[in-house]
Amino acid sequence: MNFYLPIAEMSANIFVFLGMGAAVGFLSGMFGVGGGFLMTPLLIFSGIPAAVAVGTEAAQIVASSVSGAIAQYRRKNVDIKMGVVLLTGGIFGSAIGVQVVKILRQIGQFELFVSLTYVTFLGIIGTLMLIESLNTMHKARGGKQVSARRPGQHNWIHGLPFKMRFHRSKLYISAIPPLMIGAFVGFLGAIMGVGGGFVMVPAMIYLLRVPTNVVVGTSLFQIVFVTAATTIMHATQNHTVDIVLAMLLMVGGVIGAQFGAVAGEKLKGEQLRALLAGLVLLVCLRIAYGLVVPPSELYSIGGVLGGH
C-alpha cells in the first residue's frame, strides 16, 4: 500500500516505514535508547532527503520520549530544576542548529555535514562503549566488584560563577556547565535528528556528577521539550517535518519498543551495551563507507531553496 508523503514528496510503501519504525523501536526498547541515531541514517539510506529525515525524526523522538519522561517523573527521578537549566540551553542550541541546517542546505553541504557528525559521534561513543562493556565483562568474569561511578572529586567545573543549588541532584554548581551541555546537545539534536541522550547521559554523570538515579529521567525530561521545540523550528524554518512519515514511524516505534523492552530484560547490562556498541559502530562504518567510496554518479540535482 502506497502513500504519498507530503513533505518528502515521494510515494512510499507504508509497510516499509511501519516496519522500520518497529525495528528501530524494538532496538531502542531493548537498549533503552531513543533510537534517533539509528532511524535518521536508515531514513536517509531509504531515500528520504536528509533534512526531512532529521526534521521528521525530531517529531518522532517527542513521541518515544514522552511516556518515558512521565514514568520517570512519577518515580520522582527527574530533577526539574536541572532539567529546566539544561533545556534552556538546549532550545538555544537547537535554534542555532536549525539555522545551520538551513544554511548548509542552501550551499548543498548538509548531507556531508550530517554524515561527518554521525561518523564522529557514533565512532567515539561506540568505541568507548565497547571498551567499557568488554572491560566490565572481563572483570565480572574475574569475580571483582564492578562500580560504575567513580568517587566524586572536585574538578574545574566547581570553580565557575553563578552557582545554583540542585536539590534532587544534591549538587551546588554553576549554571554555566549545564547550560553549555544543554546547548551542545540541542545543537547536535537539531542537526543529527537525535534526542542526544547518548551525549547528555555521560556528560551529566562524568562532568556534572549528577547521581545516576536522576540522570535518565532528567535527560528524558529535557529531550521532550528540546525536541518539541526543534520540531516546531524545523517546521517553520526548513519545512522539513513530514507529519505522515512521522506518524508511520511513531506507530511502528511504540509497538516495537514494547517487544524490545521485554527482550532487553533477558540480557545483562554489559551484554546489552556491547551489542549496542557493535550496532553503533556498524552504522558509523556504513556512513563512513558512503563518504569514501567513489560514487557511481558524481552529479546530483536539487531544488533551489528559499524560492518555493
Partner: peptide
Amino acid sequence: AFEYPIFYGIFAVFIAVAAGLIA
C-alpha cells in the same frame, strides 16, 4: 505545512505527545 508552518509544527508536536501518551 507551507502556509501555516508554526501551527503545523505545533500540530506535529501534539500528535507526537498524544501518540506517546496513548501508547
